[in-house]
Amino acid sequence: MNPDLELSQFDYELPQELIAQSPAAQRTESRLLHLDSRAELHDRQFADLPQLLKPNDLLVFNNTRVIKARLRGQKESGGKVEVLIERIIGANTALAHVKASKSPKPGSKLLMADTFSVSVRGRQGELFELEFPERVLDLLDKYGATPLPPYIEHAADQDDDERYQTVYATEPGAVAAPTAGLHFDQAMLAQLSAMGIAQAFVTLHVGAGTFQPVRTQKLSEHIMHAERYSVPPETVAQIMATRAAGGRVVAVGTTSVRALESAAPHVQHGGVIEGDTRLFITPGYRYQWVDALLTNFHLPQSTLLMLVSALAGIEPIRRAYAHAVQSRYRFFSYGDAMFIESATQP
């Protein structure tokens, strides 16, 4: 990492009204800002994406599934408590953020949804280890709420249960959606497949840490949150075949980027490449597998804004975001998309 990089280099002014509070009426109806390999900008629609791809390209999707990770309840003292599951670590156990007037102590119990109690087993840093009376996933499906990002101001409803989830989500474990994938519907996926554009999958369970701000001015001092990822051997084989054919690896979302770039050094592994990643991608990073990126717009001073700046350059991204604000694109999870081509793509 460049030791001279500072947080202030990744700031921009965003009017509050440009933060999308709900998705487009149809998944593919969003706008698409295209930043090409010459760092030129083009205003498009998401439906134009097939025109920007080539038959030898490979789209890599994150197939994680958002779980209903938010629970509300009370402590034994009667005080209100809110639980946000960060990671399921066993059939009946999970690590969670717990918001309460006073932190619960190990050995105490929390009554969730006026129905069942969870035991506080201890702490791991900022997270609490909780033991559930039944399978965590079953109880979350029944009593939990979809964990919308903090900048979305309404409580999750049935529409959010559907739209804050990709149509190809199969692996439960995320507490935030891989939002670039929200723009795809089954018809778009079928159209791309018919064009000869291959599709592959990785899994990265997005954690709540994705929304945590960077608190250090020098980026070299920032400690990245950990997320669980998995890249199957068939995806590795597709990447190698794509490269051999002169195609591009196009990551759908920054979470796919983190999974792919975390796996790349372990390509000789042979089987499934998996583990926890704390990969922090900043300008100066040399991408190993990713040639282009489909992504949403990211928060000021966020690690994800740094990641896209590493692919396209700080100045082109700064210019793209200024254009997006001026052109009133919709920002963040339910907002519009960008297609970014690396200046060094094959």
Rank of each mutant, 00 (worst) to 15 (best):
E227Q: 11
A264R: 05
G270S: 11
D57P: 00
L111E: 09
L110D: 07
L204V: 12
S262K: 00
R70E: 11
A312G: 05
D4S: 15
T254P: 08
S117D: 14
L95S: 10
I89D: 01
Y151F: 13
G196I: 04
A264Y: 00
G247D: 08
P283E: 10
R123N: 11
A310F: 05
Q326A: 15
Q74N: 10
A194Q: 14
N2F: 13
K142T: 15
Y168E: 11
Y229A: 01
D291L: 06
Y143L: 11
L111N: 06
D4L: 14
Q45A: 11
L14W: 10
A312N: 10
H269R: 12
V83M: 09
Y164Q: 02
F128E: 02
G144N: 13
K75H: 10
N56C: 06
G207D: 10
M224S: 09
G207A: 09
Y12H: 10
A69E: 09
L5I: 09
H323K: 11
Y287L: 07
Y168K: 08
K80S: 13
L110W: 02
Y151D: 02
H323I: 08
G275N: 14
T254G: 11
A177K: 04
M338P: 05
E6F: 05
A198H: 14
V66M: 03
V98M: 05
E29N: 14
E129M: 09
S8P: 00
D157V: 10
G90T: 00
T179M: 06
V267E: 13
L41T: 03
M195D: 06
R328C: 12
Q165R: 11
M195Y: 02
E6K: 14
R215P: 00
V249L: 13
N92M: 00
T28H: 04
N63T: 04
P23T: 04
P104K: 01
A200W: 04
D36W: 04
K105D: 03
G79V: 07
Y334N: 01
Y334F: 15
A292N: 00
P3D: 15
Q191R: 14
R328E: 15
I223R: 15
L5G: 12
L53P: 01
P233K: 04
G144Q: 05
L7Y: 05
G313K: 01
R27A: 11
V60R: 07
G73F: 06
A25F: 08
G90A: 15
A312R: 04
S37V: 00
Q301G: 05
L137C: 08
M224T: 13
F339R: 01
L53W: 02
V325Y: 12
G253T: 04
Q9H: 15
R215F: 01
A320M: 07
A174V: 09
T303Y: 09
V66G: 02
F132A: 01
H42Y: 02
M338F: 07
S309K: 06
W289F: 12
F46K: 07
L311D: 02
F10E: 10
S77K: 05
I239M: 12
M1D: 09
Y164E: 07
F339T: 04
S333N: 02
